[in-house]
Amino acid sequence: MLYSEKVMDHFKNPRNVGKMEDADGVGEVGNAVCGDIMKMYIKVENDIITDVSFNTFGCGSAIATSSMATELIKGKPISEALTLSNKAVVEALDGLPANKLHCSVLAEEAVKAAVKDYYDRHGIAYDPELLCSGDCSCCHEHDAPAQ
């Protein structure tokens, strides 16, 4: 099999999928030309991500990494969500094929883009270094960090 059982599970039964109408922050990363776009919605109360959901256009691992990322940040303080690394997503999925690692990077960036949007909407100051700009002209510029 190309993918681990965990990846297939999250691909076939994605958690927290769908649009969130009353989100406090929305982040979209990726590019249709490259074949994957992730859109992440978060609901925030007292600095805690109380709810999260996603919509993804992309391959099996793009959908699975989005799903896993939502699980990893749900119920967590924003500060913790911001420390989510693509590596943690990959580990939680029991690994990804090398040519699919960029999907995990995209998932990490989608979370950060949603938090950034939340901060911007609420006029909260932040260290831009911590956040992806959300302006990933193409996912492939962020290719394959070592696993």
Binding site: P14, V17, G18, K19, E28, A32, I37, M38, K39, N55, T56, F57, I63
Partner: peptide, 13 residues
């Protein structure tokens, strides 16, 4: 579940 489709549907793409 595709954000691309959503944009196509609501006319932003």
């Amino acid at each position: 579940m595709s954000p691309v489709w959503e944009d196509l549907e609501n006319g932003t793409r």
